[in-house]
Computed example of a mutant assay.
Amino acid sequence: MPNGPLKLHRRCQAAIDRLELPHALSVEILCRYLAARRQRPLRLHPLPPEAAAAGTCGMWLATDTEDHVFYEQRTALLHQRHIILHEIGHLLFDHRTPLDGDTGWGMLLPDLDMRTVRRLLRRTNYTTEQEQEAELFASLLGTMISEPFRQQPGGVLGRLEAAMGVDSPHGTA
């Protein structure tokens, strides 16, 4: 289909345009904006190491009342941002994957009642139309982000920076 890539680009750009986003945009501002617009929390979480070991680098999980975006934290900040924007693309396009049987996610996310899960999409490849759409959406939206995604380091480094009042380049999520 010769018009496929062009139609995909137009669809993604139209979705971004409909958002009417503020000019000063960060991942954090985008998430707060979408949560307010959709009237449901949008929470960011580092991906559990077990999921990353299984080949997943991002995931969108929708429950009855809120959305959760998981991202691989053991990668560059720019890549983390792209993963989050990709998952937000799935969320905004309302992409669906059937939840058949035991997916094993209950073991990876033990605090989550899997009966409340309505959508669970994980990012592992780009062969489907949904994945290509989310990937292009993330690339286009990424050009509008004015600052990188930042996360406060944990452990000793995070506590040391906080105690010393150091303005970390990692910031907060």
Rank of each mutant, 00 (worst) to 15 (best):
2 P>M: 09
2 P>E: 12
4 G>A: 15
5 P>Y: 08
5 P>G: 09
5 P>T: 06
5 P>S: 11
5 P>A: 11
6 L>Y: 12
10 R>Q: 08
10 R>K: 08
12 C>I: 02
12 C>Q: 01
14 A>R: 11
15 A>C: 10
16 I>V: 06
16 I>A: 03
20 E>H: 12
21 L>A: 03
21 L>S: 02
22 P>M: 05
23 H>W: 07
25 L>M: 06
25 L>H: 05
26 S>K: 05
28 E>P: 06
28 E>T: 13
29 I>R: 15
29 I>V: 15
30 L>E: 00
31 C>D: 01
33 Y>D: 09
34 L>A: 03
34 L>M: 03
36 A>Y: 06
38 R>W: 14
38 R>A: 14
38 R>S: 13
39 Q>D: 13
41 P>I: 02
41 P>H: 08
44 L>T: 01
44 L>S: 02
45 H>N: 08
45 H>I: 00
46 P>R: 13
47 L>V: 04
47 L>D: 01
49 P>K: 12
52 A>S: 14
52 A>P: 00
53 A>F: 05
54 A>S: 12
54 A>T: 03
55 G>K: 06
56 T>W: 11
58 G>F: 09
59 M>S: 13
59 M>P: 00
62 A>F: 11
62 A>R: 15
64 D>Q: 11
65 T>A: 15
65 T>E: 14
66 E>W: 05
66 E>F: 08
67 D>N: 14
67 D>Y: 11
72 E>D: 14
73 Q>A: 14
73 Q>F: 09
76 A>W: 12
79 H>F: 08
79 H>E: 12
80 Q>F: 07
83 I>W: 04
83 I>Q: 12
86 H>W: 04
88 I>P: 09
90 H>G: 07
92 L>I: 06
95 H>Y: 10
95 H>L: 11
97 T>I: 13
97 T>D: 14
98 P>R: 10
99 L>M: 13
99 L>F: 10
102 D>E: 11
102 D>R: 09
104 G>Q: 07
104 G>L: 08
105 W>F: 14
106 G>A: 07
108 L>W: 10
110 P>E: 02
112 L>G: 00
113 D>M: 02
114 M>W: 03
117 V>K: 00
118 R>E: 07
122 R>T: 08
122 R>L: 08
123 R>M: 12
123 R>A: 11
123 R>F: 10
124 T>Y: 11
127 T>L: 15
129 E>S: 09
129 E>R: 12
130 Q>H: 13
130 Q>C: 12
130 Q>T: 07
131 E>F: 05
132 Q>F: 01
133 E>G: 07
134 A>G: 05
134 A>E: 03
134 A>F: 04
136 L>R: 05
137 F>D: 03
137 F>V: 02
138 A>Y: 04
138 A>E: 05
139 S>A: 14
140 L>W: 01
142 G>D: 04
145 I>Y: 07
148 P>Y: 04
153 P>L: 06
153 P>G: 05
155 G>V: 02
156 V>D: 09
157 L>A: 06
158 G>D: 02
160 L>A: 11
160 L>E: 02
162 A>Y: 04
162 A>D: 07
163 A>L: 07
163 A>H: 01
164 M>P: 01
167 D>W: 01
168 S>E: 02
169 P>N: 00
169 P>R: 01
169 P>I: 01
170 H>S: 15
170 H>N: 13
170 H>Y: 15
171 G>S: 04
173 A>D: 13
